[in-house]
């Protein structure tokens, strides 16, 4: 039975809708600083960074089925390395590069050890390594500033010596740096998800054993996923430092690892756009609810409970149902039409 004309039409329609949505989104993101003011631009920068963080996290969680509670450690490594570089030199790109590479290297080493295990053992191992990073940052006062963190980090100009130098010291101009890097990062992630590598990772999530019997080393692919999501966490941390102009040890605490996790759960783990939509909802909801009550965590806590017990597909799967027509998807325990 080949695809019916109706099915092909539906697919084309869905593709067109998706393209229009993406175009509209990019347009809004592009004109946002001119039209909506500094506060919104600041907020949007935060959301974009969280979206990148969560999307990278979901490569590990949603695509490979591994829950890490040590993600904040890599985020903090990216942030601190970037902050140290920017405090010493004034090359923004060098700071980013340093942050990503340091986080990636740490993720490779730690991942090599953690990916021998799965499930609880993996979660506990990543938790312990993350807390090791946290305790190093907390105690190594000479380098990290201890509990004060690193402050007065400059928003250095975007420059390559001898070629160009662009001032990005305002929130609006720095926003564009964030936008470009996040867009690039997410584009690369999209390619990855649709590559053979992405297929192998999704295979691991569905049935590890079958991946091994397909001739692939599960541990190697888990490590790749771990390193990628570690690098993305490091990139997010690096981007955050010039925005906040500081780095603090709280960034590395295990409870901070919950942030990308919450965003991902909220948006939906089985969907590429899920973590990004989740990041948006999480951040905006936090800003709005925080105006009425200081008990934002409680609202978040209840949301998590409801999501896990009732809507594990997240917001995106609900939206998808409204925007796109589906033929049916499969959950781990069976089929949900």
């Amino acid at each position: 039975m080949e695809k019916t004309i109706g099915e092909i039409r539906m697919e084309n329609r869905n593709r067109v809708v998706a393209r229009w949505l993406l175009g509209l989104l990019l347009l809004v993101l592009f004109i946002l600083p001119w039209t909506l003011g500094t506060y919104v631009t600041w907020t949007a920068s935060n959301i974009l960074i969280l979206a990148l963080y969560a999307a990278g996290f979901n490569i590990l969680f949603g695509y490979s089925g591994l829950l890490s509670f040590g993600q904040a450690g890599f985020y903090a490594i990216g942030a601190y390395v970037c902050a140290k570089i920017l405090l010493g030199t004034s090359f923004l790109l060098l700071g980013f590069l340093g942050g990503v590479l340091a986080a990636g290297l740490a993720a490779l080493i730690i991942g090599f050890l953690c990916t021998r295990h799965t499930q609880i053992y993996f979660a506990m191992l990543t938790l312990s390594f993350g807390m090791m990073i946290h305790s190093i940052i907390w105690k190594w006062r000479d380098v990290t500033g201890g509990d004060d963190g690193l402050v007065n980090v400059p928003r250095a100009p975007l420059a390559i010596p001898g070629l160009f130098s662009i001032d990005v010291s305002s929130v609006e101009s720095y926003y564009y740096v964030v936008l470009v890097i996040v867009a690039l990062g997410i584009f690369l992630l999209w390619r990855m998800v649709n590559s053979p590598l992405g297929l192998a990772l999704q295979g691991i999530r569905d049935s590890e054993q079958r991946v091994a019997f397909s001739g692939l080393s599960i541990q190697k692919f888990r490590l790749i996923a771990f390193a990628i999501s570690g690098m993305y966490a490091g990139m997010a941390g690096s981007l955050m430092v010039p925005l906040l102009k500081s780095a603090d040890p709280g960034m590395a605490h295990w409870t901070a690892s919950a942030e990308p996790l919450m965003a991902t759960l909220l948006g939906g783990i089985y969907n590429f756009a899920g973590p990004m939509v989740g990041a948006f909802i999480l951040y905006v909801a936090k800003e709005l609810i925080a105006r009425y009550t200081e008990y934002w965590s409680m609202v978040l806590g209840f949301t998590v409970v409801v999501l896990v017990l009732g809507f594990r597909g997240g917001v995106v799967s609900v939206l998808q149902g409204l925007l796109f027509r589906r033929t049916g998807t499969v959950s781990k325990r069976g089929v949900d039409a």
Partner: peptide, 18 residues
């Protein structure tokens, strides 16, 4: 699944500390 147990009980942590 264990991962969801961890997440859900973490949600309870947030509720109780607030």
């Amino acid at each position: 699944e264990e991962a969801y147990q961890l997440i859900l009980t973490f949600g309870i942590v947030l509720i109780l500390s607030d």
